[in-house]
Design a protein around this nucleic acid. Structure first.
Length: 413
DNA sequence: AAGTAAGACAACCGCCCCGAT
DNA sequence: AATCGGGGCGGTTGTCTTACT
């Protein structure tokens, strides 16, 4: 319990990461995967604890991260998800491809809470502030009465950290089926991420089910193709200037028929957000489950060039032997992940010796481009990883833009 | 221009869960 | 069954930037 064992080791760096450290970590994981995180810093030549490396990777270095400000749709989605899931940031992040739980959490704490309050909505309960204040007064009166009667030990579900979310609390008392959100794609193969620490969600009619059911229902109302290309979300009364009705009973959430008016367009990886169990495990629990496919077969040249799909593992091609050199190393999308013997993200043998670790250390490169520019520019990043110039990489992408049609069918039944 | 407050973002800490032994 | 280590999560703190006085 408590502090992670690796953190006891002395002389471990703390605080902000330097560009050099970022580069070391990025290069190491790109090339060898992370394996067990505790061994990463040693192998990568970093004076950090494994947890710190993991955090840095997940929150900052992962190639599938979406950078930049949150869109209005994303904010609305976060607000609604928070209403359902409470402070389960990791689960909220699953629904927002490219966003990290930390990012969402920060946004919530620094921005969205305030916005909701300005709109007269209590960010904790998602109820109108007036109602909450009245409720608090009632609670105080009740508590004082309970104190007097000596029965004040009840669990207060409206406490600062609502678990589960208010909507779920509501659900526990009202019939969800009244809204037609019957299950259809519940967490039958629930991921660890879904299950971990959230047994209350899995039991019976879960919050995930509740939320996902809504998506499933709206999706079933829509064309299947529409479902894949768009994530139908209910329109929310959280929109700017809007106020919630006087009660947050779920019947007051406004879902237009078909619920497609507020759909968010996602790129290919949005599928991960729609197919809950299997794919979400790739997006959240296994950050290595993403891979921008740079070089892919030519069956379908019309598909996006930098597709990140939940079904694809990154794999530095086993063919990237010394003869081809690092500059020609291809990053391939390969669905037959376990069948190949080459490097695989996340599956590095923890027993890798220190000698190997020495070998793993990458020779430094002259930095012609500032490191943050790499991080914010996929082309620069990919070029750095391939030891190519951004322009040459861009040309490669342009000319070799393809998509793996079988990858999706392999992983998504 | 300097100081300060607020906001945004990054990272750490402590705890929990789970699988291996 | 008990213990241990690794991974993950949520809360909190620290740091940097920006806006304001």
């Amino acid at each position: 319990m408590g502090r992670h064992s690796c953190c006891y080791k002395q002389k471990l760096r703390k605080g902000l990461w330097s560009p050099e450290e970022d580069e070391k970590l990025l290069r190491h994981i790109t090339k060898y995967g992370h394996g067990c995180w505790s061994s990463v810093p040693k192998q990568a030549g970093l004076q950090r604890c494994g947890k710190s490396c993991r955090l840095r990777w997940i929150n900052y270095l992962r190639p599938d991260l979406k950078r930049g400000t949150f869109s209005q749709e994303e904010e609305d989605l976060i607000i609604e998800l928070h209403g359902v899931l409470g402070n389960r940031w990791s689960q909220i992040a699953v629904q927002l491809p490219g966003r990290t739980d930390n990012e969402i959490k920060n946004l919530w704490n620094s921005c969205l809470k305030k916005k909701l309050r300005q709109r007269g909505i209590d960010p904790v309960t998602h109820k109108p502030l007036s109602e909450v204040e009245n409720g608090e007064e009632m609670d105080q009166q009740t508590n004082s009465r309970n104190k007097n009667s000596g029965s004040s030990s009840e669990l207060n579900l409206n406490a600062e950290n609502p678990k589960p979310g208010p909507a779920l609390q509501q659900q526990q008392h009202t019939s969800v089926s009244a809204h037609g959100y019957q299950t259809g794609m519940e967490c039958s193969s629930s991921t660890k991420a879904m299950n971990s620490g959230n047994n209350n969600l899995i039991a019976s009619s879960t919050a995930n089910d509740f939320f996902l059911d809504r998506f499933a229902t709206t999706a079933s109302n829509a064309q299947q193709s529409e479902f894949v290309g768009h994530l139908p979300i209910p329109q929310l009364n959280y929109s700017s200037g809007a106020r919630l009705p006087t009660t947050t009973s779920s019947s007051n959430l406004w879902f237009p028929q078909g619920a497609l008016a507020g759909s968010i367009e996602f790129s290919s990886n949005a599928i991960c957000t729609v197919l809950p169990s299997l794919t979400s495990s790739f997006t959240s629990a296994a950050p290595m489950g993403f891979k921008p496919s740079i070089t892919v077969p030519s069956e379908n040249p019309s598909m996006p060039s930098f597709a990140t799909t939940g079904s694809c593992y990154w794999e530095a091609s086993a063919a990237s032997n010394s003869s081809s050199g690092s500059s020609s190393r291809e990053l391939q999308s390969n669905s037959s992940f376990f069948e190949n013997s080459g490097f695989s993200w996340g599956l590095v043998d923890c027993s890798t010796s220190d000698k190997d670790a020495q070998i793993h250390l990458m020779e430094s490169q002259p930095e012609e481009v500032k490191w943050p520019e790499y991080l914010n520019n996929p082309l620069l990043m990919a070029a750095a990883l391939q030891n190519q110039t951004p322009q040459s990489l861009y040309n490669e992408i342009k000319t070799e833009t393809h998509f793996l049609p079988h990858s999706s069918t392999t992983m998504w039944p």
